[in-house]
Amino acid sequence: MDLARVDAILEGRGSEPFDVMEVLQDIQEEFRYLPEDAMRQTAEILQVPLIEVFRLANFYKAFSLKPRGRHLITVCTGTACHVQGARKLGDQVLGQLKVGPGETTQDGAFTVETVNCVGACALAPVVIIDGEYYDHMTPKKLRKLISRIRKVDAQEEETRTNA
C-alpha cells in the first residue's frame, strides 16, 4: 500500500473532520477500495476517531473494504429491472465470470455487484459498467459486452508488454 498516495489525497482536501467523506471517496477512486492503512491515516490527519471512519466505510455501499476489480459491473435489481428480467442478467454475468454477487474475478478484472435501483427505470433492465449505463439489456448483449471489454483489456496488455 502506497501511503504517499493517501497523503497526496489528504493534502488536496480540507483537513477538517467533516472532510472525511470526500477523502474516503477519493481513496476509493484511487485504490478501488479502502485499504486499512489509508483509513488509519485519514483518521489521524483529520482528527476523527478511527471508528468513525470505519463506520462510514461500512455504511455506504459506494465504499468497498475489499479490493475491487478493474471493471465494476453493477446489475440493477430494482422493481422495473426485476420485472424486465434482471435476474437473467445477473445469472448471465455471474455464470460467465464464475463469481458470486459482490465478488471479484480471480484475475482482478471484474467485480459484480447488484444494486436496488439506479433510478433509470424507463431504461430497464439496466446494467452499469464502469459508470456507463447500458439500457434495455439482454443476457446476449451483456455477454458480448463483457467479451469486448476482455478483448480491449488484452490488447492494452499486449501494447504495454510490447512497448
Binding site: M39, P49, L50, I51, E52, V53, F54, R55, N58, F59
Partner: peptide, 16 residues
C-alpha cells in the same frame, strides 16, 4: 474506540 457498524438489520457494535 467503539461504535456502531453497518446499517439497518445488520447494525452492530464493534471496534475498528
Amino acid at each position: 474506540a467503539k461504535g456502531s457498524i453497518g446499517r439497518g438489520m445488520n447494525r452492530h457494535i464493534g471496534l475498528p
